[in-house]
């Protein structure tokens, strides 16, 4: 079942008097339970694409569908709701709240998503247990190692059962041994809970856990994937089905 689609997505920014194009007609799709890695050099547009897929930025043109809901760049107030419902993030810098304990970090994310009280606390404990940190539930982030912090970040992303997990360089701040452990744990949890996992990375180890690996160069995703989705879109048009959303939108940051 397809949970994330990007079709012919472009993104450009105004820089001074010039418009700089970051993404050029990117198309890709993720199925539930699928793990996809996106590799590319710095400045190739990886993080911009991740931001668009995660409804943090909107595309300048093209179409993004998240968990069955087309993202309307003109309706920015809807984006937080899509993020709450469908997306879990894992960041390179962990981005934990330093004043909250491990379990509170996870529980707070659940509170933001609308879960409250005992239900939120038990879900937080469930995911902490899943990442093997039950015994560190009352530790503050400053008292945890980098690997433990990233496991809390993964638990936070898993909490609430969002169907899509987006990870930005999740192993960049970890040594290679811990990084490999984290990736393996992330893979098995995503598979077990049937979540789509999209990982932006420089780390070649990510390949080993991925079902597919996409390459991005100068804002263009490697030909195979783009063509596959592009062909599906063309087929839809050929069947006389108009695209649900216009292909061109003005860019807007959230």
């Amino acid at each position: 079942m397809r949970v994330l689609e990007a079709m012919d997505v472009t993104k450009d920014y105004e820089e001074g008097h010039e418009r700089v194009a970051v993404l050029h007609g990117v198309s890709l799709a993720l199925e539930r339970g699928e793990i996809v890695a996106l590799e590319g050099p710095s400045g190739s547009g990886k993080t911009t694409l991740l931001s668009i897929l995660g409804c943090i930025l909107t595309a300048s043109s093209g179409r993004v569908v998240v968990d069955g809901e087309p993202v309307d760049p003109a309706n920015r107030s809807r984006l937080p709701e899509i993020r709450r419902r469908s997306i879990g993030f894992v960041f390179q810098q962990f981005n934990l709240f330093p004043s909250l304990t491990a379990v509170e970090n996870v529980e707070y994310a659940l509170n933001v998503k609308g879960a409250k009280g005992a239900a939120a606390r038990s879900e937080a404990e469930r995911v902490l247990d899943a990442v093997g940190l039950s015994d560190r539930r009352d530790f503050l982030p400053r008292d945890l190692s980098g690997g433990q912090k990233q496991r809390i970040a993964i638990a936070r992303a898993l909490a609430g059962r969002a169907p899509i997990l987006l990870a930005d360089e999740p192993t960049a701040n970890l040594d290679s041994h811990i990084g490999a452990q984290i990736l393996e744990m992330f893979r098995s949890l995503a598979k077990k809970e049937n979540r789509a996992l999209f990982i932006v990375t420089h780390d070649p180890k990510v390949r080993s856990i991925s079902d597919r690996v996409l390459q991005i160069r100068d804002g263009r995703v490697a030909a195979g994937e783009s063509e596959t989705v592009g062909a599906a879109l063309a087929a839809a048009r050929g069947r006389g089905q108009a695209p649900p959303l216009p292909m061109t939108r003005s860019s807007a940051a959230l």
Binding site: P80, R83, V112, L254
Partner: peptide
């Protein structure tokens, strides 16, 4: 950055 995280997780 914490407030940015609140926004990123849906706040």
């Amino acid at each position: 950055k914490e407030f940015g995280t609140v926004k990123a997780i849906g706040g």
